[in-house]
Simulated assay, not measured.
Amino acid sequence: MDELLKNAGSVEIGFWLLEKMEEDKYILDKISHLKKEMGVIKWIKKMVQNGYTIKEIKKILKSSFNSTISYAQKFLNFDARVVTISNSKTLEVYFKTHPKNLEIVVPVSNPGGEGKILYDKLKSTCNVKLINDFEVEKYIKDADYIVTGADSVCENGVINKIGSKTLAILSKYYDKPFFVIADKTKFFDSKIENKIFELIPFKLITAIISGEI
């Protein structure tokens, strides 16, 4: 469990949590305490409080997830050079199933090396390159767009892995679009209590791409 909570993206943790809730009624409170930055966990808690069954919540989460990826692929339906960061189930599926040719660049994403995890998931099926974190500027200069996932979409910005704000600032500097792909289950105000997360202000984000819930 510790390894999954450390390395998995928020949607992945959400699906895992729903499976575990069927056998451990206290696990939602445990994970809520450990992962205060993750909007999807707050969403699950709210759905439970509103009387939805675990089966119903799973169905809605899966539908929202698939809808968001489909919408993002339609919105960004062209060949592109792309820079991303960290490990995200949303981006993993987005890249693997994208109908166009993408050249994907992923920094290692230290501390934690989550970018290496995403790279390993993509390397057999996608055109993906792993780079050192300090190299990211030269790839942003040549990118068509930069894209990240999100742990939460809050009132004043998007919470994601540290390093995301740097990508957003560089994107603004080089006049490159910066997109966030996040399904509606992540639209919850959250607190940053872990130093590996940071807030990306809305003024640095070109658009948040989200599907139906």
Results as ranks from 00 to 15, higher is better:
residue 96 K to Y: 00
residue 161 K to A: 05
residue 104 I to W: 09
residue 161 K to F: 12
residue 128 V to Y: 10
residue 167 L to K: 01
residue 118 L to Q: 08
residue 175 D to W: 03
residue 165 K to Q: 06
residue 173 Y to C: 03
residue 103 E to K: 12
residue 140 I to S: 09
residue 186 K to L: 09
residue 77 N to V: 02
residue 70 S to N: 11
residue 146 I to W: 00
residue 142 D to R: 10
residue 166 T to M: 13
residue 190 S to T: 15
residue 126 C to R: 13
residue 114 E to R: 04
residue 190 S to E: 14
residue 89 K to R: 12
residue 72 A to K: 06
residue 92 E to T: 10
residue 115 G to I: 14
residue 76 L to N: 10
residue 125 T to M: 10
residue 144 D to L: 06
residue 158 V to M: 08
residue 148 T to Y: 05
residue 79 D to L: 03
residue 159 I to G: 03
residue 125 T to K: 15
residue 71 Y to R: 11
residue 168 A to L: 07
residue 166 T to S: 07
residue 98 H to I: 07
residue 85 I to H: 15
residue 162 I to W: 01
residue 101 N to K: 15
residue 120 D to R: 09
residue 130 L to G: 04
residue 161 K to Q: 04
residue 189 D to M: 07
residue 197 F to V: 00
residue 117 I to F: 09
residue 123 K to A: 04
residue 158 V to A: 07
residue 169 I to T: 02
residue 92 E to I: 04
residue 180 V to G: 00
residue 75 F to M: 06
residue 118 L to N: 02
residue 86 S to M: 05
residue 121 K to R: 13
residue 197 F to S: 03
residue 171 S to I: 08
residue 122 L to D: 05
residue 164 S to F: 11
residue 146 I to D: 01
residue 147 V to A: 05
residue 171 S to G: 14
residue 128 V to T: 06
residue 105 V to H: 01
residue 184 K to E: 15
residue 135 E to R: 01
residue 70 S to T: 14
residue 111 P to G: 02
residue 75 F to L: 10
residue 90 T to Y: 07
residue 172 K to N: 08
residue 113 G to A: 12
residue 119 Y to P: 00
residue 152 S to I: 10
residue 78 F to E: 14
residue 120 D to N: 15
residue 190 S to L: 01
residue 79 D to W: 12
residue 115 G to C: 11
residue 144 D to M: 08
residue 144 D to N: 15
residue 182 A to M: 05
residue 183 D to L: 04
residue 167 L to N: 03
residue 165 K to T: 10
